[in-house]
């Protein structure tokens, strides 16, 4: 999609979502914020996956963002929505930039296990910390908006609008990143690390950038979720939470920056309705759905959009163009 069209689509989708928010019932507003919050984390997971690395510990930054919001309100007296979310961003940026120095050296299963270990260390530390509510966590302050104290409904609506705007900005920035030399270098790295190195760039630089992006988006997602739930706990860093993010990334696909949002929406709606239908067996329903997706749409739900787009394009231009052949192509390979 040309950049201008993409920008218009993002602005229109964000405005539409904000407008729809005025007529959504409370439960759906809450669900939508949860979707956007988790999707922000999954964006980071997808960015890493596009570079051929899988983080089994993205719950680490999800939890760091949430605790940054919680601690900011509890110990620093910050109640402003923007101020708290800024804290989440800084927490993700600082922790990601430090841990990224370690993580950039690892690949494949080592990267996955290292990230898992880090998130479980945080889970253990928070679980043992009496000051931070141990395994129960603690309730966070109700946010104010630019100094104004709002009713619970209005505060939730303000968080909703903020979540929509934040998601719009992340999608816009994310798409710019994926189309940038650094974004393409990430894909190139997955294909051939040796060639990347021989083009004069350290693969570690590319991994580090990806890791930083993923840690910041996960922290923002965690902060947003904390504000929505009004409560945080160490289970946000637990391995099953990180596993859920990978599940969603596979569900949505990684071929487009908006795919995690579609994947999260599908996941949350399935889970919500599966819980209604079968409170004790909703995991089975989710498992069956994932198997279905892997078998029929191995590139995720977004591949449906991509193939539809391809069909429309080939329908417009007729048969695909043929590349002229030259002698070199003849007779080998």
């Amino acid at each position: 999609m040309p950049e201008k069209n993409f920008n218009i689509t993002i602005i229109a989708a964000t405005l539409l979502l904000i407008t729809v928010g005025f007529i959504l019932p409370g439960w759906l507003t809450f669900l939508t914020i949860s979707i956007l919050a988790k999707a922000l984390v999954v964006v980071g997971v997808a960015v890493l996956m596009r570079g051929g690395i899988v983080s089994f510990g993205q719950g680490l930054y999800y939890c760091i963002g949430a605790y940054a919001v919680g601690l900011g309100g509890k110990f620093l007296g910050i109640t402003d929505l923007l101020g708290l979310m800024f804290l989440a961003l800084v927490a993700g940026l600082v922790s990601g930039s430090l841990l990224g120095l370690l993580m950039k050296r690892y690949r494949e299963i080592f990267f996955a296990m290292f990230s898992l270990a880090l998130s479980m260390i945080l889970f253990g530390v928070l679980s043992k910390s009496q000051l931070l509510g141990s395994t129960d966590g603690f309730t966070i302050v109700k946010p104010t908006i630019l100094g104004a104290t709002l009713s619970t409904d209005n505060a939730n609506h303000a968080i909703y609008i903020f979540a929509c705007l934040l998601s719009g900005i992340v999608i816009w920035l994310g798409q710019r990143y994926l189309r940038s030399p650094m974004g393409f270098a990430g894909e190139a790295l997955r294909d051939n690390e040796v060639r990347v190195e021989y083009l004069g760039v350290a693969p570690e630089t590319i991994i580090y950038t990806k890791y930083l992006i993923a840690s910041v988006t996960a922290s923002l997602g965690g902060g947003l979720m904390a504000l929505t739930l009004g409560h945080i706990g160490p289970e946000m860093a637990y391995w099953s939470q990180s596993g859920e993010f990978i599940f969603i990334a596979l569900l949505g696909g990684t071929s487009h920056i908006a795919a995690p949002f579609v994947g999260t929406a599908v996941f949350e709606f399935i889970r919500t309705f599966a819980l209604e239908l079968a409170p004790n067996a909703w995991q089975i329903i989710l498992g069956v759905v994932l198997i279905f997706i892997i078998i029929f749409f191995p590139s995720g739900i977004w591949s449906l959009f991509s193939s539809l787009k391809e069909k429309l394009r080939s329908g417009e231009s007729g048969s695909p163009s043929k590349t002229p052949s030259v002698d070199l192509k003849k007779g080998d390979s």
């Binding site: 710019r176 990143y177 940038s180 650094m182 974004g183 990347v196 950038t209």
Partner: peptide, 15 residues
């Protein structure tokens, strides 16, 4: 793009 800089651009388009 990669040979041009040790830190390739993050927001400028490749194309």
């Amino acid at each position: 793009s990669l040979t041009a800089s040790r830190w390739p651009s993050v927001l400028q388009p490749l194309r």
